[in-house]
Amino acid sequence: ALATGAREALERIDLRLHHGIHPRVGVLDVAPIVYLRDRDRGAACAEALVLADLLGHEQGVPVFLYGELARGRTRQQVRRGGLHALATRMQAAETAPDFGPPELHPTGGAALVAARPPLIAFNVELAPPATRQDARRAAATIREGGPQGLRGVRAIGLWLERRGVAQVSTNVEDHHATTLADVVDAISLDATPAQAELVGLAPRAAFAGFPENLPLRNRRTIEQALAAAKQTST
């Protein structure tokens, strides 16, 4: 299914015409194989390598592994400086893909592949008159290594031009160590959250203690999606 979706994306999307504020280096950008149980880790790693080979050799997309498949290399390291900077590093032989051609796909860029537990994409919009600087300050405070130092949290501060609001955009990589409520609480020390947004799905446990008075768009769990898929198949 991932390979089919990748083929469709490459046929329909031209990265050269895309404009956005979130970091990315390709039409696919990140294509992880996610495992929910530790005992499935080995199978997920094997499937991720098969996917990387398919994307690289059948779709012509240079693939960079990250995480445990690449000795801990992070998405941020590959994305550093954006697509143009990655192309420059590839041309200078400073970095090379693990699968696929040595140059970027002309319209699709590159792809990042890993095997990992669930990662939660969680965004918090700040109440006016918060600015981009306020969002950046809050992000720097809560990300792992910052003053608040939430474990397994990556965060950036953005300004959403179309909506005229500041946003703290996060990836929560370990929801057992840091719940979404922990993220909201940490942001609240520097700014006032107005509403939140879940991008994709999250494990049910990640919502433990989530504040009932904070609106949350797209609240949907992995468990709900799996149950719905099981019902459809029976």
Rank of each mutant, 00 (worst) to 15 (best):
T234I: 10
L216Q: 11
V172D: 00
G108Y: 03
L180E: 00
R132K: 15
V27E: 01
V63T: 08
L55S: 01
N213V: 05
V165P: 02
L201A: 07
V50F: 05
A227G: 08
G108A: 08
Q76N: 13
P101I: 07
P118D: 07
G5V: 06
L158A: 13
K230N: 10
A52R: 08
Q195H: 12
A93L: 01
G157I: 04
V172E: 00
F99N: 03
C45R: 13
T4H: 09
L198F: 01
I187W: 08
A93P: 00
G100I: 09
V25I: 09
L83V: 12
A155Q: 02
R24T: 09
I222K: 05
E8H: 11
L65Y: 09
I120F: 04
G20L: 15
G157Y: 07
A31I: 13
L158Y: 03
A48V: 06
A194G: 03
P128M: 03
G146L: 05
R220G: 04
D174Q: 07
P147Y: 02
A3R: 04
F210S: 00
L119N: 00
F122V: 02
L214W: 14
L201F: 06
R151Y: 05
V78R: 12
T95E: 11
K230V: 12
R116M: 05
L83I: 14
A121E: 01
R39E: 11
A1E: 03
A115D: 07
L51C: 02
L160F: 10
F64C: 10
L112T: 00
A196D: 03
Q76T: 10
A227C: 05
N213A: 12
P129K: 06
L104V: 02
R132E: 15
G108D: 03
N218E: 11
I187L: 04
P23V: 13
A70Y: 07
E8P: 01
A181W: 02
D182P: 01
I21G: 04
R151W: 07
W159F: 13
Q167N: 09
I21A: 08
L28T: 11
A111N: 02
Q224F: 03
G157W: 10
T107V: 06
R217S: 11
A87K: 08
A196I: 04
Q76F: 09
L214G: 15
V153R: 00
A110D: 01
A229R: 11
I120C: 00
G100R: 08
A191Q: 12
G56K: 02
I142L: 15
R154H: 05
S169F: 12
D98T: 11
V184N: 03
E197Q: 02
V63R: 14
V183M: 01
G109M: 00
C45E: 11
T107C: 07
A229V: 12
F64D: 12
L104E: 04
G149N: 14
V34S: 10
Q224K: 09
A114E: 11
L65N: 06
L83T: 14
R16F: 05
R136S: 15
I21M: 13
G149T: 10
R41D: 04
N171A: 06
V168L: 14
V113D: 01
V78L: 03
K230A: 12
P128I: 09
I142M: 04
P106H: 05
D190I: 06
E125W: 14
P106M: 08
T179L: 00
T4A: 09
A205D: 15
H19C: 06
L54W: 05
A181C: 02
F210C: 01
L198W: 04
L69T: 09
